[in-house]
Design a binder for these strands. Structure first.
Lengths: 253, 253
DNA sequence: TAGTGGTCTAGACCACCAT
DNA sequence: TGGTGGTCTAGACCACTAT
């Protein structure tokens, strides 16, 4: 009932990480060194490292080595990120504010604005008929220190944003998207956020430069105005090792 | 610039899943069959399957085969799970209600109640000094159809729960924990939930029977009473392929 | 018992990174 | 250039599941 060699090796390495003998950024012994040290084939040492990578403890970098992953402070996003006072006091988007709070350099890049027919998932949340009404799709990428952190794709009914700055990057200006919505009569008043987690698709892993063993948080956010009308749905996909959510809510009766 | 064979094979299998030629529960060809079919070594076919498992698409079962994972409907938990009206109208805990809504059989098992010294993380949220005050720790396991879904560990200051049913399983009764708290003067009024996601530890993967490639959601929940006093912190760890969160909130100014 | 995945060996060549 | 991880081969034995 003794564990296979690959697990033994993984356990020893894990112990060294847990005890602080190996700390964030440290390089592990190479696969070949481990293999010789433990008297196993290289593939066995490799398997041990894979077990650690699957737990999110280490990351392999081709040609460089295997490194202990750091426990990063999470960027925390809650409902207050939509508050008008935050928009007005800082002049920063909530993402920018949170990244700067940690001494990093934020940037946001709107990569596309298109008019599309919505998926059933989106149409349902916007209370529109996907056979009849189209939506504007805005795709934003969020970076900290030029590292990609999140992708957010916002959908709004064409009937709401037609002719407004929201549908046109040239007129968008620097401020918050929600300030623009408010100017055209939709002040964000209540939100719904549906949160789940999963492993990234290969495309997401590539685009967000997510190492192996790191899941993503997916947040389907719906914003409703002062009349309870849903006017935008945003699907966020964020690296779970850098991002978290922090909600404070009253408990309704 | 052509992809390695293992990725090619993974891509083909993934295509079959995406196109619905292989659906949830279907068995993939065995590693040996794949190897022969594609003219590669068994390890190469195995690597292809591992790539799919890492994306959460398939699960290997020792001695049985490799199976396409289903896209399960998520159990959705929001702030309303703490509402008194829900407690009173259904007589069910929110977990039970949500599981039954999907036609499955819920069960909850309180495995331990202990008096312990809190970690810094817990003490901080309960606004107590971990050097002075102790807490009661209740560990609950949640099942649907005898499959483990979540673990929840609740911490409450000893000064609040001393002598109450919350600190004593014998006196606990069937109803909700929050009903018991309310009886001793702490009605849950506002909550804070800090959400993150990560890969499970080996212990969690084993205890919750989580297949490879499935992350966990970790929710640190703090409950505050009518006076704003935090009286319990619960740390939930839930399989992310079966559980999600659904919050509706007003946007504060 | 036959078939499956889990693990391992002892090599090999390639792609990438730093020097 | 030498060292690293990435991938592959062609075997082997073990552990588990089903019949």
């Amino acid at each position: 009932m003794t564990a296979p060699p690959s697990r033994q090796i993984a356990r020893e390495l894990r112990g060294q990480i847990d005890r602080g003998e190996l700390v964030a950024g440290d390089k592990l012994p190479s696969e070949r060194v481990l293999a010789e040290r433990y008297g196993v084939a290289r593939n066995t040492a490799r398997e041990a490292i894979r077990l650690l990578a699957d737990q999110g403890l280490v990351t392999a970098e081709h040609g460089r080595g295997v490194f202990v992953r750091g426990k990063h402070r999470l960027l925390r996003f809650g409902a207050e990120r939509y508050a008008r006072t935050l928009r007005e006091s800082t002049g920063l988007s909530p993402f920018r504010a949170e990244v700067e709070r940690q001494g990093r350099v934020p940037s946001v890049n709107c990569v596309s604005i298109e008019r599309v027919t919505p998926s059933a998932e989106i149409a349902e949340r916007l209370l529109i008929d996907s056979d009849v009404e189209t939506v504007v799709r805005r795709e934003n990428w969020y970076f900290a220190d030029d590292e990609p952190m999140q992708v957010g794709v916002t959908y709004s009914p064409w009937s709401i944003v037609e002719g407004t700055p929201v549908a046109d990057s040239a007129k968008m200006g620097k401020g918050s998207l929600y300030a623009r919505f408010e100017e055209v009569g939709h002040a964000i008043t209540t939100i719904r956020e549906e949160v789940s987690a999963r492993m990234p698709t290969p495309e997401e892993a590539h685009g967000l430069k997510i190492p192996d063993g790191v899941p993503v948080l997916e947040v389907v956010h719906t914003g409703c105005d002062q009349d309870g009308v849903p006017f935008e749905v945003t699907v966020f996909v964020m690296r779970a090792d850098y991002n978290g959510l922090d909600y404070k809510m009253p408990v309704e009766d």
